[in-house]
Design a protein around this nucleic acid. Structure first.
Lengths: 275, 275
DNA sequence: ATAGTTTGTATACGATGTTCACTATGCTGA
DNA sequence: TCAGCATAGTGAACATCGTATACAAACTAT
């Protein structure tokens, strides 16, 4: 959603004497600029949703905002950078949805939290197919868009390093693991090369999850990403009019692999639509 | 590779008196035209591989072929149609690779055939990431490119109707099933809505596979597509430098779900490169 | 040889991303 | 208070894109 904060109120109280302070130094100009940046991404998104990715044009965005194309260069170095900024914004929104879904289930039910998060991922992707395709179903595009205004740069750096998109679920997985570690193969039957790479990841990621859990996490992430992507792209249309029951079946299988557990049915009936 | 058939020889023997006959009526002009069409897709592909999808421009293609952009309109109605033709060509190549891989394993080893096919899918996608993204990791794009010269229109219509991309594996799955049906849940524990849709698919697809096998097929297809797509898109880079062992681990899990079986190690060491 | 189809070019139009020179506007510090 | 300046915006221009049209060359068939 990201409602326009319409220039906010002018009553800024915070000491403006220290413009280098990263906390609350927003001068009037800076606030106006932030608002414009927000309007740009909002406009770009509406254009994307209403007319598709190829309509996401500098001139079209500017037209909708009542200005000319070169003006946008005051805010982004290029068309590409603008789109990267939009993607950044979408990623933040998606992460927010995932965390909200996760936290909507009691901490005493870690599997329920995981299932809710997976369902939220699918729901967001289906509700925003064009955003999903633009942002996450495209060669990784690098972790940080290089240019992009300070806005929400580090955002949710819950996990160390710049893990790409897949890292989102890692944090959630770790959180669940810390509350209630589930039974997991100890990794002794894993391929040597697989154990090697998982060990490396284990170190790089802070060492919270043991190898076997990392393997389970990655297997689940791959499965989830695939199920959502294939459905959003319509590659399942020949088989299903609504792939939800297939998705739920996959969730159950994932749960079984994670330690013989059956996820509760989703709370909201069928296809609730989140922002 | 699709070598240019450089206008072939002029010695055409087949009776040219019946130009409506779909068999061998290629007049001299028609052959030259076919050759040009082939050169167009070959040129387009080289451009795609060398400079990326956004360089896939009518003018660039024409330039490489030594002619001007409007000339291409003699062969395709639009830029979009040309790209669709390329995708069609790539799909045919991929299917060919899959079938070749499948047939490289003895019919007495259906699981081996399945595993070989899955590996071939991954191998092709990794060897041709840009082609893969353009053709198959994009909203379904419709089954037939509308325009596209007769070329390879029906191609491998092994399975009825125009199943989208995922239908490719269905044929292979059916072929394996007919040779050696594997144990599969009878579907009695499936969700009612899931059974309903699977029954519909069962009918639409010719009724070869029982519901439970269809479910196993779809679950496997989703998993395979996801594993390949996520790897090609680089969304696994934060975890693996080479995701092959993870892929093999997934294959084993798939095999287990299909009836307690362990696939043999891949024949060619590591990363053989096809076509 | 003549007529007709096919293939290609030249030119042009509108739209795109991007650059550059220029102009308002509002903030800042003497 | 007012000069100075950074900022946000415009307008015109350039190269490139997909596409349409009108015309010329080449091939085929009679």
């Amino acid at each position: 959603m990201a409602e326009m904060s319409e220039l906010t109120e002018l009553t800024d109280l915070s000491d403006p004497s220290d413009p280098s302070d990263p906390k609350e130094p927003r001068s009037r100009r800076a606030r106006a600029r932030d608002a414009t940046v927000a309007e740009i991404t909002a406009t770009a998104r509406s254009l994307l949703v209403e007319e598709g990715a190829e309509a996401l044009t500098l001139r079209a965005i500017a037209r909708r905002m009542g200005l000319t194309a070169p003006a946008l260069y005051r805010y982004y170095d290029s068309h590409e950078a603008l789109v990267a900024g939009l993607v950044q914004h979408l990623l933040a929104e998606l992460i927010g949805q995932l965390e909200a879904a996760r936290d909507s289930v009691a901490r005493t039910d870690p599997y329920g939290r995981l299932a809710a998060t997976c369902r939220a991922f699918r729901r967001w992707a289906l509700a925003h197919p064009r955003e999903f395709q633009l942002g996450f179903a495209t060669p990784s595009a690098g972790p940080a868009p290089a240019n992009c205004p300070p806005e929400e740069v580090p955002a949710a750096a819950t996990t160390p390093a710049d893990l790409s998109f897949g890292g989102v679920f890692l944090g959630i997985f770790e959180e669940i693991w810390e509350i209630a570690p589930f039974p997991v193969p100890d990794g002794s039957e894993l391929d040597p090369d697989l154990t090697r790479q998982l060990s490396r990841l284990h170190g790089a990621v802070g060492g919270v999850l043991p190898i076997g859990a990392l393997h389970a996490y990655l297997a689940g992430w791959v499965r989830l990403y695939g199920a959502v992507t294939i459905e959003v792209f319509g590659h399942l249309d020949f088989a299903f009019d609504d792939a939800e029951s297939m998705f739920e079946s996959m969730l159950r299988a994932m749960g079984r692999d994670l330690g013989a557990w059956e996820p509760a049915a989703p709370v909201g009936g069928g296809s609730a639509q989140l922002s």
